[in-house]
Design a protein around this nucleic acid. Structure first.
Length: 370
DNA sequence: AAGAGGAGCAACCGCCCCTCT
DNA sequence: CAGAGGGGCGGTTGCTCCTCT
């Protein structure tokens, strides 16, 4: 227990990542996948802890990340999910395509908590503050979140407790969730969303019935109506979404420069081309910054740009991101291989259509298997 | 214009769980 | 079965930027 072996190693860099480090990590994972994270730094030539590499990849370099501010719908969804799951950020993040647990956690701590308080809702219990204050004496007997409350109230909310592990999503033919919350089984709660088959309509129903105050605050954000049109399959069926983020316009000059060279266009060339063409602004820690283009228009962080490039390529490959890198990426990068569910695409279908159109209109060539 | 304070974000830390030997 | 090692997660910290005074 305690620190990992890799953390004992000396002379490991800490702090912010430089573009060179990002490039090394990106190249390595793009080419080989991450495999064992502890061996990634060595193989990639990084003076970093494996965990640090993993974190960097998950929170920043992963191509499916959606950068930018959270939409109102996303915020509302986070609030509703938090009401049920509490601070289980990874499970909440699993329901928000392209968002990381860290991102959501930061949003919650910096913004959403305050918003709820301003609206008179206790961010811990999701109950009205007045009610929480009045019930302070009985706090020890009160559940801390809605799910606990549900179990305590013997709410018959059907949930699957037999599938503790995430698995292929198959919502056709009816919901696999066919059981009830077992208040005595911690795993059932823990895995509530891990199985990715939690019926969001029931969640919505649940939050509606268990927290009237919340709905009074968000009367128009009922997920079943706003976020979730009547899908027969659960929106929540995808572990991690794959929502392209076109934060850089398709007619950006720099984007055109990302088109891979015709001669021996290897993945390294593509990535290198990207880095060279990126308008990524790194000023403080890059002693020898990669050649940066003059920013034309709004300055864009390169990961956003990266997202666009990788995802556009994926989109051009018939929305088959798993073939994007011609590699297998395991573990939390399941978005490459487990993105078979189309439900996530429904989430922002309109946006994607726009992106598709942008792709078709642009002359950007897919760089195929990078 | 400069300093203080707050907000937002990236990254680290410590712990837990799981798997392998 | 127990210990070691790796992956993952939630909490926390620290830095940077922005706004206000």
């Amino acid at each position: 227990m305690g620190k990992h072996s890799c953390c004992y190693k000396q002379k490991l860099r800490k702090g912010l990542w430089s573009p060179e480090e990002d490039e090394k990590l990106l190249r390595h994972i793009t080419k080989y996948g991450h495999g064992c994270w502890s061996s990634v730094p060595k193989q990639a030539g990084l003076q970093r802890c494996g965990k640090s590499c993993r974190l960097r990849w998950i929170n920043y370099l992963r191509p499916d990340l959606k950068r930018g501010t959270f939409s109102q719908e996303e915020e509302n969804l986070i609030i509703e999910l938090h009401a049920v799951l509490g601070n289980r950020w990874s499970q909440i993040a699993a329901q928000l395509p392209g968002r990381t647990d860290n991102e959501i956690k930061n949003l919650w701590n910096s913004s959403l908590k305050k918003k709820l308080k301003q609206r008179g809702i206790d961010p811990v219990t999701h109950k009205p503050l007045s009610e929480v204050e009045n019930g302070e004496d009985n706090k020890s007997q009160q559940p801390t979140n809605s799910l606990d409350m549900a179990s305590g109230a013997s709410t018959e909310l059907n949930l699957n407790t037999d599938n503790p592990k995430p698995g292929p999503v198959s919502m056709e033919g009816g919901s696999p969730c066919s059981n009830t919350i077992n208040s005595t089984n911690n795993n059932s709660r823990k895995d509530l969303f891990m199985d990715s088959q939690f019926p969001i309509q029931q969640l919505n129903w649940f939050t509606q019935t268990s927290n009237k105050a919340f709905d009074s605050e968000f009367p128009s954000t009922s997920m079943s109506t706003t976020l979730f049109p009547p899908f027969t399959t659960s929106f929540l069926s995808s572990h991690i979404g794959f929502k392209p983020s076109l934060t850089v316009s398709s007619d950006s000059p720099s984007m055109a420069s990302f088109t891979p060279h015709s001669s021996s266009s290897t993945e390294l060339q593509c990535i290198g081309s990207f880095f060279e063409s990126s308008s990524y602004s790194w000023e403080k820690e890059a002693p020898n910054p990669i050649h940066l283009m003059e920013t034309q228009g709004d300055e864009t962080k390169w990961p956003e740009y990266l997202n666009s490039q990788l995802l556009m390529a994926a989109a051009l490959q018939n929305q088959a991101p798993q073939t994007l890198c011609n590699i297998e990426i395991k573990s939390e990068t399941d978005f490459f291989t487990n993105s078979s569910s189309n439900s996530m695409w429904s989430f922002n279908q309109h946006q994607q259509q726009q992106q598709q159109e942008a792709l078709q209109n642009s002359d950007l060539c897919a760089y195929g298997h990078i």
